[in-house]
Amino acid sequence: MHTKTKKRRSRCLFLLFSHTPTTEQIEDARLSLGVESIVAMPQEIKNIWQQFPPDVLAIEPMLKPVKKWLSQKSNKGDFALIQGDFGATFLMVLYAKDIGLVPIYATTERKATEIMQSDGTLTIEHIFKHRRFREYGK
């Protein structure tokens, strides 16, 4: 009996973070993670993810549309780059693991320059350079 094997599509990287990925991050995702497709949040999901009201006691109900989007669009084994509000990140990392995704975050090298202004104020400039992706919990 001939059994047809289901061809698995290439792995995707779903972005749950507020900024646009850098060229270095995109290249690293393709090389180190083997992803061919990078999927950004639709605008309505991005609007939720970018600003959780600080006065709200529980944000989990607000994450329902984010979870729905992720579960409908992703497949087991896909990656989810999750960074943002600490509570939302924690909840979405747990959820991603529950549905079989690999939750990751980006690590950076940070350089800071401090400049004392003539009026006595201090200006600090931060430069972030992508280094690698790391899986949550490892």
Rank of each mutant, 00 (worst) to 15 (best):
E27T: 11
Q25G: 04
Q117S: 09
K111H: 11
L31N: 09
M92S: 01
G77C: 07
R110Q: 11
G34K: 06
K111W: 05
I48K: 02
P54D: 10
R110A: 08
P42D: 12
I48E: 00
G84K: 08
V56I: 13
I26P: 01
R9W: 11
I45K: 06
L31T: 08
A88Q: 02
L31I: 08
V93Q: 01
L81T: 04
L33N: 03
T113P: 01
Q51C: 15
S10Q: 14
L81Q: 03
F133D: 02
D119N: 14
V66D: 02
F128L: 15
L81K: 02
D55S: 08
L101F: 00
I115C: 07
E27F: 06
A88D: 01
E60T: 13
A58V: 10
F17W: 06
G120D: 11
H130Y: 12
R132N: 15
F17L: 10
A112Q: 11
L16D: 01
K111A: 09
T23L: 15
E44S: 14
V66H: 03
T113E: 15
E114I: 05
S32K: 13
S37I: 13
K68A: 13
S118E: 12
E27V: 08
P103I: 01
K7H: 11
D28C: 14
R131N: 10
S71Q: 03
A96M: 02
T20K: 15
P65G: 12
T20H: 14
E60A: 11
E109F: 09
F79T: 02
R8F: 09
A40E: 14
F133S: 03
T5Y: 09
F128D: 04
L63M: 09
A88C: 05
I48Y: 00
F52M: 13
D78T: 07
T108F: 05
P103R: 02
R8C: 09
K46E: 15
D119C: 04
K6A: 13
A112Y: 04
L31D: 10
A106F: 01
I82Y: 03
Y95H: 13
G87W: 02
S37G: 12
H19N: 15
Q43A: 15
F133Y: 15
V66F: 07
H19M: 09
N47S: 15
I115T: 14
F128T: 04
A29P: 00
S10G: 10
T121H: 13
I127C: 13
P42W: 09
S10E: 09
L57D: 11
S32F: 10
Q43R: 15
E27A: 14
T107A: 07
M41H: 06
L70N: 00
P42H: 12
R132P: 03
I45Q: 04
F90D: 00
A58F: 10
H130W: 09
G87K: 04
W49R: 00
T113C: 05
R11W: 05
Y95A: 05
T108W: 03
I99R: 00
K6C: 08
A112M: 12
F90Y: 12
T107Y: 03
Q25F: 05
L101V: 01
T113A: 09
I115L: 11
I82P: 01
E125S: 08
P65K: 08
T121Y: 11
I48G: 01
L122W: 10
T107D: 06
D28F: 08
P103Q: 05
P54R: 06
P103S: 07
K76Y: 02
V39P: 07
K73T: 14
